[in-house]
């Protein structure tokens, strides 16, 4: 078990004045079997904000800023206790997590990639083997893909970032009848949000990180999960404004708190 102080700051800057700005943010850890949130602090310079949960039980901050502005700043500070030995056993949406989405859909090459693994009978062993194989097949390369890249494209190029690794692995799992979900969060000592995968076997959800070839342990804090990246989008916004471009500055720090 580990305890972390997590600080998440996000600054949106708009190229011109906007107004009637609605936003939804998913970067608020919540309490679940493997992590316990001791405190959550939210600061945001909007007219109002409120908290809600989506259908995957992810916490979300949503709100509105009416008047003209060209900046929105968010700060989330959380104290989170993580214990990876606790498992989530929620089976209520398994059929949903078995269905491919346009981001996870397989192409022929991926189907063929699966073939040598058909001899595995135990889904848990198969899942581990697939993740390891994928780690060796793919090359991590920043900038090689973007947020719209699907599993097929990334797999064809054999290059990608954590989001692509996750989408491909989820696609392979679902094709093998193993329910799988996309997880977004932060990994200890990382400065960026990370993405990994959870698969369901033996009546529980296991976390696996194909980008690092690791099983998810106490060093991961979860923001949200879903069918694919789209369900875990950290920021969604709608506003009035003409030809606006927007930049996001994100700063993350996740430090372990060591008790004497």
């Amino acid at each position: 078990m580990k305890t972390f102080q997590l600080k998440y700051t996000m600054d949106f800057t708009f190229s011109d004045k906007i107004n009637h700005h609605y936003f939804t943010l998913k970067c608020l850890p919540n309490t679940q079997p493997r992590q316990r949130v001791l405190t959550n602090k939210v600061r945001i310079n909007a007219d109002y904000y409120s908290l809600s949960k989506d259908c995957f039980s992810n916490s979300m901050i949503y709100g509105y800023k009416e008047g003209e502005h060209d900046r929105l700043s968010l700060y989330v500070g959380s104290l989170v206790e993580v214990d990876w030995t606790q498992y989530d056993t929620d089976d209520s949406l398994l059929p949903v997590y078995l269905k491919q989405t346009k981001f996870t859909q397989l192409n022929e090459e991926m189907q063929e990639y699966l073939e040598p693994f058909s001899s595995y009978e135990d889904p848990y062993q198969k899942a581990l083997a697939l993740s390891k194989a994928l780690y060796h097949t793919m090359t991590y390369q920043k900038g090689s893909t973007n947020i719209k890249t699907d599993a097929q494209t990334a797999f064809t190029n054999k290059k990608g970032v954590c989001q692509d690794y996750a989408h491909i692995l989820i696609g392979l799992y679902r094709q093998s009848e193993i329910p799988a979900r996309y997880v977004a969060g932060v990994m200890c000592e990382e400065k960026y949000t990370h993405a990994w995968v959870e698969f369901y076997a033996n009546g529980r959800w296991y976390g696996i990180d194909p980008t690092n070839d690791l099983l998810v342990d106490d060093n991961y804090v979860i923001f949200s999960r879903g069918r694919d990246y789209h369900d875990t989008l950290v920021n969604k916004g709608i506003f009035y404004g003409m030809n606006i471009s927007q930049t996001q500055d994100i700063e993350i720090s996740m430090e372990e708190i060591l008790y004497d």
Binding site: Y22, T24, S50, S52, K53, Y62, Y64, K236, I238
Partner: peptide
């Protein structure tokens, strides 16, 4: 609700689903 369903919907009401859930 463009924040929950089709993002490009201009005829919807952002965050309607959140208050509906409540």
């Amino acid at each position: 609700d463009p924040m929950t369903f089709l993002e490009e919907s201009l005829i919807g009401i952002p965050h309607l689903m959140e208050i509906y859930k409540k």
